[in-house]
Structure formats: C-alpha cells, structure tokens
C-alpha cells in the first residue's frame, strides 16, 4: 500500500505493453507473464497486453487442466478488468492461423491487424515480452 502511494506522488505514468507469445501450459512463460502483469497493476501505470503467435491460446475458452495436473490460470485473465487493466489486444493473423475467432476467447479484446499492433507497440515507453 505504501509503495502505491509513493508511486502516485512520483506521478510518472509510462506506457507498458506486455507481449504474450507462448501457449499456456507447455512452458511457464504465460503464467509468469500474467503474474508480472498483476503486480504491475499496483503501480498505476498505463498497462496494455498484446497476444500474438501462440499467446492467443492463453485466452482460449474451455481450458481444463485436470488431466495434466497443473493449475488452470485462464480464469485469471477475467480478473484483469478488476485490476483496471482493460487494454487487451489480439493479433488477427495469429487468430486466423489457428482457426480461432474472437468468440473462442474468454475475455473481451480488441482484434488488431499485424500492422496496427506493430504501430501500437511503437508508441510504448516499455515493451516486455513473455
């Protein structure tokens, strides 16, 4: 709580984009990325999330991990709104290559073309990749 207040007094708000490019359960990247995003919410920065390549699978509806004995963290993406993280972008080309549409995703997102996502990435102060 103290740290949050200190940050506010500092008043520096930067644009952070977290780029998610890995499928959820085969490696630890997706979960680690999500935890960093949740922690970043405590610092009142301008945070956005981009999902491209296999990262789009992180948002796939209907994940059931009981059979592989790992935590199903996909419901946590729905908690992001409560953390005031509302800018979620998904690359259209990555969705299409995987036979997915916006309806397959478990949160509301903005679907962007590769070029649009690239342009948005270019506007950031900090880009962090998972």
């Amino acid at each position: 709580m103290m740290d949050e207040m200190d940050m506010e007094e500092g008043g520096v708000v930067k644009k952070f984009m977290f780029v998610n490019r890995k499928a959820p359960h085969g490696t630890i990247y997706a979960l680690e990325g999500l935890e960093v995003v949740l922690i970043s919410a405590a610092f009142d920065q301008d945070v956005s999330l981009a999902f491209c390549d296999d990262g789009v699978y992180e948002l796939k509806k209907g994940q059931d991990t009981k059979g592989i004995g790992v935590k199903n963290f996909s419901p946590t993406y729905r908690a992001l709104e409560g953390y005031d993280i509302e800018k979620l972008y998904v690359e259209k080309e990555s969705l299409e290559a995987r036979g997915l549409t916006e309806d397959d995703l478990l949160v509301d997102v903005q679907v962007l073309s590769s070029a649009e996502l690239g342009a948005l990435m270019d506007e950031q102060d900090v880009v962090i990749s998972f």
Binding site: A23, P24, H25, Y57, K60, K61, G62, Q63, D64, T65, K66, G67, I68, V70, N72, S74, G99
Partner: peptide, 22 residues
C-alpha cells in the same frame, strides 16, 4: 494426447482421423 488437448481447450476440434490417447 487427450489431456493436453483438454488442458488447452481444444479437445472439441480435433481433426478427423487423429487418434486420441491418454
């Protein structure tokens, strides 16, 4: 491997002819 398909939410869209195993 079926448990890996299920974990990723894609068990319902497997290509016909692919055999699922546990």
């Amino acid at each position: 491997l079926q448990p890996d398909l299920a974990a990723r939410g894609v068990a319902d869209r497997v290509i016909d002819g692919v055999t699922l195993v546990d």
